[in-house]
Design a protein around this nucleic acid. Structure first.
Lengths: 193, 193
DNA sequence: CTAAAAAAAGGTCATTTGACCTTAATTTCT
DNA sequence: AGAAATTAAGGTCAAATGACCTTTTTTTAG
């Protein structure tokens, strides 16, 4: 429902009801089945995406078919390949649905016009982008320096709600370790507790 | 010299000479000796930094003393811990000088006022930040998915000029591999060529 | 509800990687 | 220029990791 999105905006911003309505009036509703793609690498990321319900992921694929996950986007978050969206150039990433999902989409043209018409929205969007950049940095540091145990522990702490919703192979793909190693880590934890 | 900075702005932007002068007039000059810190983790990143000459790095330290490098900043680039700078909160990273370096610094207050007074500058700054975000993403994907060989090859391709200026242990720290592994990769390359 | 598909878990093994140590080469600094 | 410090490189070894395969369990979709 669009209502869920409007509630989200009311909760997270101090936008007026008129502004909120203007924003949602330009949204396109879309559903994705499990495993359905929003776009594939080589295609242009043409929309801003808000996840009403469900769970998306953005990931890169290695030649041998390995999937390396950059980010999960559960309900009430946004997703996009910023590089492809901003420049309207082919993406090197894929986005698909881990669970059946309901989305709101805005074309870049529409969203850009909203950003100029509603400075509050622009500010809010910038905050989201900044937060994403910060967490991306922290994630890079973890990827460079942490052991598999630490990476997994970090994931559990950071995304406790996602744990039960994701196949372990995707968590492994997010952490940059093999499923085998992830299983070993989890086994070791069971023994310890 | 401040001239180097002004030339950089003339080259990279279409800012007026008056604007450029206004920007550089608020800059604080600072020199860093080799290995000298700009700030350490726990401190707040209080300045925007432009590197006139030399080479800085931003890195995180693990409890055992391991250094994991997020980014190198050679001459005519900027550096900062954005999270600490934006929020003026303690940083979890360190910045120090790999080579003796000449810097220009702006306090956040000064730079913020420049950003509001000079919309062009704001646009330019946003472009730089975006570019950084995009490359950070790509870097994360590499960190998650690439073999040591591929990581090193990628580094050589991306930063050919830095190769000869950095101790190998720092390149290892940037790639997230041990010095031993880096040496092995380089040995293998010598044989192949 | 049931058949089919996907996921988890476990076993085995070869390889990679890093830890630790030593030696040689290079660089820095006074 | 010369002493001290840093860096590179190499040897050895144990541990960690991933590849590959099988079996069992769970989930999905018709």
């Amino acid at each position: 429902m669009i209502t869920a999105f409007e509630n989200y905006l009311r909760q997270e911003t101090s936008l007026s009801d008129a502004d909120i309505h203007q924003i949602s009036s330009l949204a396109i509703r879309r559903k994705l089945r499990r495993n359905e793609f929003l776009f594939r690498e080589g295609e242009v990321c043409r929309h801003k995406v808000f996840v009403i319900s469900g769970l998306l992921r953005i990931f890169g694929m290695t030649p041998d078919g390995g999937e390396h996950i950059l980010q999960f986007s559960p309900e009430t978050t946004w997703t996009i390949d910023a590089e492809s969206y901003d420049r309207q150039t082919p993406s090197i990433y894929n986005i698909d649905a881990v669970e059946p999902s309901e989305l709101l989409l805005w074309t870049k043209a529409d969203f850009d016009s909203l950003l100029t018409r509603i400075p509050q929205l622009k500010k809010f969007a910038e905050q989201l982008i900044s937060g994403n950049t910060y967490s991306g940095r922290r994630r890079l540091l973890t990827a460079l320096s942490a052991t598999p145990e630490q990476k997994y522990e970090d994931f559990v702490q950071t995304f406790p709600r996602l744990l039960s919703r994701l196949p372990l192979r995707m968590i492994a793909g997010y952490l940059g370790i093999s499923l085998k190693t992830l299983n070993r880590v989890r086994q070791a934890q069971l023994l310890r507790s």
